[in-house]
Amino acid sequence: MAITVQGVSKRFGDFQALDKVSIEVEDGSLTSILGPSGSGKSTLLRVVSGLEHPDQGRVLIFGEDMTHLPPQKRGVGFVFQHYAAFKHMTVWENVAFGLKVRRRPKREIQTKVAELLELVQLGGLAERYPGQLSGGQRQRMGLARALAVEPKVLLLDEPFGALDARVRQELRTWLRRLHDEVHVTTVLVTHDQEEAMEISDCVVVMNHGRIEQSGEPRRLYDHPDSEFVMSFLGYANRIGDSLVRPHDIRIHLQPGADALAATVRRVVFLGFEVRAELEIPEGQTVRVQLTRSQAAELSLAPGQTIYVDLAHSRRFPEEREAAA
């Protein structure tokens, strides 16, 4: 295991940021820690990096107990949401910083920095200052700076959170490709479920300072352990006490056993996908996702009465809150 966190707790005053959290991160993987704000995901990352000290529990990196070591001695790379660029240094100096602090030979620093700047596609901007770069460029610089010291693990704290949607999408894809090239164990903190699903080998879902569930993105999506996971990963309609994904709802034109009558309120064509909003008798709105051909077959129109089959809906035992 690249990273092992055992029973880590952390309080800030009255706020329990982490509550006996344990996770394991496999060597060479890209793991996302996913959760809403205040779920403790960033605190967990900072505890692993040594920037925060846990009140309880242990942090091991490649089997070595790092719990009481300062960040300087952990051999980790850290990328910050707001870049944390050294404003008074050029891009080149930023990337060289870790190597200079470690007093590596000049020649080695030259080659290494040049190599990294190529890797993050900033080769031509070495003499610029961070203030002259775009957000995306600054974050790539931050990544190069973190990779320069050849960290054992790379920790990214909402690295794309401050970027606009298009750049975020680009960098996400690029990061995954980079990870496949460099192969350093990477942990990424995010509140964006799409981001987590798209790039990670493993997703750890957090809520209220605890781990809700972890595993491959697909397994989490298809077999959520809790209501929280199901509704946080992708959209889920709540009907009574069961949850159902918009694409798991079957629509029939004739009444049938276990089918609920509903009225079509709105139909939106989004190319391949068609979204429909239905109203069920209790006045609740239900979102349905259909393919273009399914929609054509049904020829849905607003005002039409149809019958929905909720056989694929799920129920979860009472929230675990009570058990804790």
């Binding site: 990096s49 300062p70 300087q72 850290f78 910050f80 870049y83 870790g98 470690r102």
Partner: peptide, 15 residues
């Protein structure tokens, strides 16, 4: 002053 800068330097090995 952005404290992140100091944290970044610490993680990179600066005392």
């Amino acid at each position: 002053l952005d404290r992140d800068m100091e944290e970044a330097a610490a993680v990179l090995g600066a005392g």
